[in-house]
């Protein structure tokens, strides 16, 4: 979907800026906006480019930096922590060879932290793009990662 057709779903008023940006990024493989896109978006919503940049830098779902096709957001809140989310993080780190905030060289996975996903009774949990995974164990994580790797090839 092009940028134009996407943002035109929203009224051209600044209050829709955050949502439009989020939806547009979700639809893109690299989950980010480029400078030239920011220029267009600013124009459409009738705000300054610096305003768009400041909004993008504030929200954790928005980014100017390209991300992997699958963004893994691991819950780092206490109920998950009490249920050993640390071991899930370490499994992701060793399997993917990256630390939180980084992207794998093949551009497939980005690893990030998130706040509580509201799945605390099924902790630990993470999200991959729009899907939530719960009751994780390192063993399960390995299987989930292989599924995503296969999906791509």
């Amino acid at each position: 979907m092009t940028l134009e057709s996407m943002i035109q779903k929203y009224p051209a008023s600044p209050e829709y800026l955050v949502e439009a940006l989020r939806d547009y990024q979700m639809a893109k493989n690299d989950h980010s906006v480029t400078e030239s896109e920011i220029v267009k978006i600013a124009k459409y919503f009738n705000v300054t480019e610096s305003k768009v940049c400041s909004v993008v830098s504030f929200y954790s779902f928005l980014s100017e930096k390209p991300k992997g096709r699958y963004v893994i957001r691991i819950c780092r809140d206490v109920p998950c922590f009490v249920n050993k989310s640390e071991s899930i993080l370490k499994t992701l780190e060793t399997r993917l060879g990256i630390k939180p905030g980084e992207t794998t060289p093949d551009g497939l996975f980005t690893l990030e932290y998130t706040g509580c996903l509201g799945q605390c009774d099924h902790a630990p949990a993470f999200r991959i793009n729009d899907m939530t995974y719960v009751d994780l164990t390192p063993d399960k994580v390995k299987a989930i990662l292989s599924e995503y790797r296969e999906e791509k090839s």
Binding site: E15, F58, T114
Partner: peptide, 26 residues
């Protein structure tokens, strides 16, 4: 409906309103 974009502090009511207005949720 208005959807958030991943910032915990937006649960604070004044930050929430800033976010609905399309600003940084401060």
């Amino acid at each position: 409906l208005r959807l958030g974009a991943g910032a915990f502090v937006c649960g604070e009511e004044t930050a929430l309103m800033a976010s609905i207005e399309g600003n940084r949720g401060m």
